[in-house]
Amino acid sequence: MSGNGNAAATAEENSPKMRVIRVGTRKSQLARIQTDSVVATLKASYPGLQFEIIAMSTTGDKILDTALSKIGEKSLFTKELEHALEKNEVDLVVHSLKDLPTVLPPGFTIGAICKRENPHDAVVFHPKFVGKTLETLPEKSVVGTSSLRRAAQLQRKFPHLEFRSIRGNLNTRLRKLDEQQEFSAIILATAGLQRMGWHNRVGQILHPEECMYAVGQGALGVEVRAKDQDILDLVGVLHDPETLLRCIAERAFLRHLEGGCSVPVAVHTAMKDGQLYLTGGVWSLDGSDSIQETMQATIHVPAQHEDGPEDDPQLVGITARNIPRGPQLAAQNLGISLANLLLSKGAKNILDVARQLNDAH
């Protein structure tokens, strides 16, 4: 009898209710805020589980004197976190989706994509230029951005401005803007500013005609071990179906173009009346040469937790077992079709030249 009692006690200790789920994140304040929001949602869904947040620095956090596009290494903000995932030191990792490459290392998958916040870019102005827009900034004003995508589009749109690289986390960039006289304004992701509670610093939100956004911008991705079915089931509740389908289309477009950090590629997606609209573009580094096109596809946005595919093969690095396969494939095909259209119009040449120029500098 006593033996059975011990077995029952052991089973209770090993039951999922007692389990601590370890969540990996970057150390920056924004990353911690984003991770806290994901953990809060998981806690609400699984009140019996405990969650421990483990923060670590990544290569991208450490190399702050070089433009991201020049470092010449993929997975700048993800490699150390993936290493911890691989060694079973954490069970899942919360990322900004735009930091996750469209091809993940073997053994990993994006197990959830959370509801997207505003994906557009924002302009934050130096205190002396508050009330201005990019259009009304004085001639030769210097605007800071760490992104080739932003610089290429904005140089084309605002030729009277000069664009220079600015690195560091959000706090560091804002301090550089406010305390030094080098920059009249800087460009940042609206979602990051909003998550930090800095709505009052948003001086201008850039519309798609001015600057399309990065693939996955404004959404959070939760990376897990691809074979860890328990954790895949656990994080599945975080999937937002519309965000998922938009981001599958965007990531398929980028992957098929073979774009990345070192080339200016941008997108804009919208879901309306059962249609998914995808606009994508590529630019030369100075913005003088560009190709942009829009395509659409009829896609039914499923309700969360309709029964999805059981075999769960990944699409552009994403596993969404609780979302039907048909809409996911339709979104992926839309991204591939748009990429093929741009490639047929000469996108590869623009991107190759951009890559060579970026590598040469």
Rank of each mutant, 00 (worst) to 15 (best):
S290W: 15
A44C: 05
E209F: 15
L148G: 14
L97R: 01
F125D: 02
G308S: 10
P47G: 07
L238R: 02
I186L: 08
N349C: 08
I113L: 13
L174P: 00
L351I: 08
L170Y: 15
H126L: 08
D352A: 12
P119M: 03
N349I: 07
P127L: 14
I54S: 07
S45H: 08
A40W: 10
L49S: 12
N358A: 15
H305N: 13
S45W: 10
E209G: 08
T133Y: 08
A297S: 05
P302Y: 08
D286A: 07
S184I: 09
E258W: 03
F163Y: 11
T59M: 13
G197L: 04
L285Y: 15
A226G: 12
A40P: 03
G216M: 03
P101D: 01
S146A: 08
G281Y: 00
I323N: 09
M271E: 15
V124D: 01
T243K: 05
Y213C: 07
V124Y: 00
I350M: 06
Q217V: 01
G107V: 08
V316K: 01
T58V: 08
V143T: 06
I336Y: 02
Y213A: 01
S57R: 11
E52K: 05
Q332D: 08
V316A: 11
L104D: 05
G281P: 01
Q155R: 11
I63A: 13
R164H: 14
R149L: 02
D65L: 04
L245M: 14
M56D: 14
G131P: 06
R246I: 06
H239E: 05
E310R: 13
I113K: 01
I54H: 05
R325M: 00
T136F: 08
L334F: 11
G221V: 03
T109P: 00
S141T: 09
R164W: 12
V94S: 01
K79E: 12
Y277T: 06
T298S: 12
G346N: 08
L148P: 15
Q217N: 00
V353C: 03
F108H: 00
F129V: 10
G197F: 07
H207Y: 14
E210H: 00
G192V: 06
V143H: 03
V90R: 01
K62T: 01
D311N: 12
P264Y: 02
S165Y: 10
P105C: 06
L315M: 09
G144N: 02
I291S: 07
D307K: 15
G107L: 09
M295R: 14
A189C: 10
V237Y: 04
N171P: 06
K98F: 00
R251F: 03
C211A: 11
L234Y: 01
K348I: 15
D307Y: 09
N169I: 07
E223D: 08
I54F: 12
E139W: 15
L244M: 08
L193S: 08
A347V: 03
S69D: 09
P309R: 11
G192F: 00
S37H: 12
K115H: 08
L104Y: 10
D61C: 03
F77W: 10
H83D: 12
E139V: 08
I231M: 12
T294R: 10
L134C: 08
Q296W: 07
G168A: 02
G236A: 13
V103L: 08
T109L: 05
L68G: 06
V235C: 03
K176R: 11
T190R: 07
A191E: 01
L343A: 08
Q181P: 05
